[in-house]
Computed example of a mutant assay.
Amino acid sequence: MRAIVVDDEPLARRGLEIRLAAHADVQIVGYYGDGASAIGGLREHRPDLMFLDVQMPGMDGFQTLRAIPANEMPLVVFVTAYDHYAIRAFEASATDYLLKPVEDSRLAQALARVRQARAQREASGHCAHLLGLLGELSGRPPLDLDEALKPDALDLLRREEKLAVRDGGRTVRVDLHSIRWIDAAGDYMCIHTDGDGPNGNTLVLRATMRELERQLDPQRFPRIHRSTIVNARRVVEMRPHTNGESFLRLDCGQELKLSRSHRDKLAVLL
């Protein structure tokens, strides 16, 4: 954990430094003697944890906290010589508070709380990120936790009438009914769709076959080859080929090979 120490007393800063040296997972990246310089240090170092004195010249500890944007706020442990500040410390969402002079056992207890709070914060952030991705895949706003935990959440995404594909920093949505077939071209996927001309349109995106398979209903979009997925509703004819392979003809005239290793998809296509 990257930490900063904010205290106007040099001896107090030094004492905390000595005690924190016994905790290998804590690295002090900055020392500050007032609230204004501490705010600058937060932006420079982006620490995980701040040890913050309550009484300081200029901005006190509580005023310093109010000046920090929520998205830059680290975990906070107040350090004070007066225990009557404890209630205000917790009202300010501090993880813990320490009384001066700081005792080793009390510091260890505070750090245990910090580690737990950090783990919970990271888990919450990771959960929010995953929910956002699920919502993006479905083309909806980010899902809430109750929606994402439903047993049929993935099936609901697959029943969407649009395929949402991430391509770098953008998300492209394609009408499922317009897709004829999808094939791989190196690190890219080619999604062949209906268009104005007889050959339709081809959308080239940086994605993987596995990513698309996860979103598509395999009964509606079976994989028929190592590098090909087809819209089963667009297949109008099938004829056998050598070695157990077959050729599929789509309603647009395109022919695709059904490989021997994917013959189990015949039941879906017939």
Rank of each mutant, 00 (worst) to 15 (best):
S93P: 00
E136C: 02
G132I: 10
K265A: 07
V77I: 15
A70I: 07
S178E: 08
C127W: 04
E245P: 05
R206V: 02
L212M: 13
D152V: 05
M59Q: 11
G139W: 12
E122D: 13
R214E: 11
E213M: 13
A89M: 06
A128F: 03
A24Y: 00
R19Y: 00
G195R: 13
T208W: 06
Y188R: 09
K100I: 01
G35M: 09
R158D: 04
A94I: 01
H225W: 11
M50N: 03
V204Y: 00
A148D: 05
A117M: 13
S124K: 11
G139S: 10
T193K: 03
Q27M: 08
L149G: 02
A123W: 00
R233N: 15
Y85P: 01
L270K: 11
F51P: 04
A86H: 02
R88I: 00
A12C: 11
S105G: 10
I224D: 02
A12H: 08
E237N: 13
L266I: 14
R13M: 03
P69Y: 03
M209W: 08
K257N: 02
R220V: 08
S261H: 12
G139D: 09
R46T: 02
R140T: 12
R220Y: 00
A67F: 06
R166W: 04
E44G: 06
